[in-house]
Design a protein around this nucleic acid. Structure first.
Lengths: 113, 113
DNA sequence: GTAATATGCACCCAGGAGGTTGCATATGAC
DNA sequence: GTCATATGCAACCTCCTGGGTGCATATTAC
């Protein structure tokens, strides 16, 4: 009953860019920092980073575009925070694949017996 | 007690390439197919794909290098199958970040009160 | 032995990603 | 008003990635 094309509300064409956004060390660091210490301005997020502020800004844009982060302007600074809903979707996507794999194994076992 | 640097056994420098491997539509299709219909040869996996066999081969190499797929030679063909352990690790990684986010929210709420 | 099948290998190409720098602009501090 | 701070924008560079082609090689089928 499961096609390889769509999985619980998260089409393959949408899941790929989501994982791609997670597939960069600098961005994972940003997410970990946001998750660990809560919201912060761009300058906050730059402290300790090995790359320039512009680079961080671009990564934040990628994360925001992927729905993993949202930001708002506060005075002269932009405050970013984690948007965990999208993480749950990625989470669920991996679940579906694992489950398909399990049932495929089961079918295989059935054939063998 | 959680640093932003490492999360339960999956260092950030290892998680990034793992997600990067998941961040491509063609590769997600391959994984979905392997999960859904079980192991298959490269030619099997090429049927229905929009890209050349060489392209599929390269994607399989990426997946195998990321630990998501393993393959063995069988006669003149190479049979690939899903290696679900790695999926679980990615799964767990997202879990950790979500959990950190939750506790960060809780700390924040504590400060406000 | 010969032909067909299934891969592997080596290049080539275009486009996008990640980084940097320099300069413009908006806001808060004094 | 003036200055320092926090970003936004744009141009540029380099490298990696995804895709393609042509040809060599190994196996199985006849």
């Amino acid at each position: 009953m499961s096609t390889a094309e769509s999985t619980n509300g998260l089409p393959i064409g949408e899941a790929a860019p989501l994982f791609a956004a997670l597939g960069d060390e600098t961005r994972l660091r940003l997410l970990a920092r946001l998750a660990d210490r809560g919201p912060g301005s761009i300058t906050d997020l730059c402290s300790g980073a090995r790359v320039s502020r512009q680079s961080i800004t671009k990564h934040l844009v990628v994360l925001e575009h992927a729905g993993l982060v949202r930001s708002r302007r506060e005075g002269r600074e932009r405050v970013c925070e984690l948007a965990p809903g999208r993480l749950q979707e990625a989470h669920g996507y991996l679940d579906v694949i694992s489950r398909q794999w399990d049932s495929a194994l089961e079918r295989l076992r059935f054939f063998v017996e």
